[in-house]
Design a protein around this nucleic acid. Structure first.
Length: 492
DNA sequence: ATAGGGTTAG
């Protein structure tokens, strides 16, 4: 046990400790070794951990490289470090990777979009060096990898090829279906999001149960997420019940609880979300984030900000996702000044570098509140390349608040169409804009373009579940409960 | 000996 207390925490005493480590033979044992490398990566940075690795007398082995890749993956260091270790294993030390090499490497790779090239060759590597996807861990990680990158087709294909997928593989697939929300295009696998995807995933869950696999916590994180997205409240409650009934097998951990909060929040049961949140003894950042975003969805901006203040007071780490939820809460409740203050705080006090998503929220906030000019000012200050979402948000606020000189800015429209030509909502929005300005020729042009591109707008539909049946309604159509629904909306 | 899971805005 004594070596643990000796673990170095600064760059200076690492080498000294390392010498001691080798001299006492501790470096032959994996657990102390992992601790040493892990602490090196944590306190000295990934570069330093790689230096330490190079100091081992026999040079890096596959085992050592695997260990360090897994450490990098778990500490969320950028992909380049894992990839560096992996490629020097191959090309500098001429060693062969094994099945332990890939799961953590895939995990690191899946987090970064800038690594498409490497992401594409990884599958080939696996086939080349391992002779196939025979290994359970490798298979599951590959399914999860394709899923995280939104390549559902590839993901599903691999899954179907497997003879007897185990629980983690099922979980990865379910998680992939859950994440498939935005739809995605890829050079190798075309995939267009269709609504079936998510409802299918509940069917998948059923198949899994029928096959006799016992779901675990991860399964429920995915399943509850899907329930929330399709508004399947009763399935969600069923899942909650299942967890409670099988408390010896499935533990209500932080992951599951935050998924429950999310599900109840999205299904319109803020009360139950709050109940789950209140029951918790310890709450981590994602739990707070889930609760804050629920409050945001329900338009309860002040409570959301209150919770954010509580987080700061009790020392829970506020991260970038928290800020997105908080800003969107401000946006939904039109709390302009509060939102501005939170954005300020983020950079000054919390030291969080605003990402493009945060700018989006801010622009949305200002635009919705009618401060279109301010929104445009911010838009010009954003240091990153503007996204389709930003243009969309800007244009729609122009439309609502009637800043006509700006809204007819053809450049913005053109840029938006270039960036996201498949997004049906764009065409509808722009054509409505022209219709407002009574530019009927332009309206016609847009409609034709839409038809030529083969873009179709699926109607915006809300759904509500009554006695186990899901009723869908959109503008002007809500059979058979149209009157009750509008009455209850008015009385609220 | 070394391995696979959590969200957010429009």
């Amino acid at each position: 046990m004594s070596w643990k207390s000796l673990l170095p925490t600064s760059k200076q005493n690492f080498l000294q400790f390392h010498a001691h480590f080798v001299a006492t033979g501790l470096s032959n044992h994996s657990i102390p070794l992992r601790h040493l490398l892990s602490s090196a990566a944590l306190h000295g940075g990934p570069d330093y951990a790689i230096t330490i690795l190079a100091h081992f007398s026999h040079g890096p082995t596959t085992f050592l490289s695997n260990t360090i890749i897994s450490i990098f993956a778990s500490q969320n260091h950028p992909v380049c470090y894992s990839w560096y270790v992996y490629s020097s294993l191959l090309y500098r030390h001429c060693l062969l990777p094994n099945s332990y090499s890939y799961p953590s490497l895939l995990k690191s790779l899946s987090t970064s979009e800038d690594w498409n090239f490497h992401a594409r060759c990884i599958h080939t590597h696996i086939v080349k060096f391992l002779g196939g996807i025979g290994d359970r861990f490798v298979g599951a990680s590959l399914v999860s990898f394709y899923g995280r990158r939104g390549m559902i087709k590839a993901c599903r294909y691999l899954f179907d090829e497997m003879l007897d997928p185990d629980l983690p593989t099922w979980n990865s697939l379910l998680a992939a279906y859950l994440r498939a929300g935005g739809g995605e295009r890829d050079e190798t696998f075309f995939f267009h999001y269709d609504d079936e995807c998510r409802s299918n995933s509940l069917g998948l869950f059923r198949d899994m149960l029928l096959r006799g696999l016992a779901p675990d916590e991860m399964t429920f994180v995915a399943v509850l997420g899907v329930c929330g997205d399709v508004g399947a409240l009763s399935q969600g409650m069923w899942a909650h019940g299942y967890i409670l009934r099988h408390s010896n097998k499935v533990v209500l951990n932080q992951y599951v609880r935050s998924a429950l909060i999310q599900m109840y929040g999205k299904s319109g049961r803020l009360d139950l979300a709050v109940e789950v949140f209140d029951e918790m003894k310890t709450r981590d950042t994602p739990c707070y984030n889930a609760m804050i975003s629920c409050l945001a969805v329900h338009g309860n901006g002040h409570c959301a900000i209150g919770l954010y203040e509580i987080m700061k007071l009790n020392g829970t780490k506020v991260d970038e996702s928290t800020m997105i939820s908080v800003l969107s809460a401000c946006s939904h409740a039109v709390l302009v000044e509060e939102g501005r203050r939170c954005f300020e705080e983020m950079t000054t006090i919390l030291n969080i570098e605003p990402k493009i998503e945060h700018y989006c929220c801010l622009i949305d906030l200002l635009g919705r509140a009618g401060k279109v000019r301010d929104a445009i000012d911010i838009f010009r200050q954003v240091p990153m390349k503007p996204t389709a979402i930003m243009y969309r948000s800007l244009l729609s606020s122009c439309r609502i608040h009637g800043e006509s000189e700006l809204e007819m800015d053809g450049d913005v429209v053109k840029k938006l169409m270039e960036l996201d030509p498949d997004h049906a909502g764009n065409y509808v929005m722009v054509s409505n804009m022209y219709a407002n300005g009574e530019e009927w020729d332009s309206v016609k042009k847009i409609r034709t373009a839409m038809r030529e591109m083969g873009v179709r707008k699926s109607p915006g539909i809300s759904s509500i579940e009554i006695d186990g049946f899901v009723y869908e309604f959109s503008t002007g159509y809500a059979e058979p409960y149209v009157e009750e629904i509008s009455r209850s909306l008015i009385t609220r």
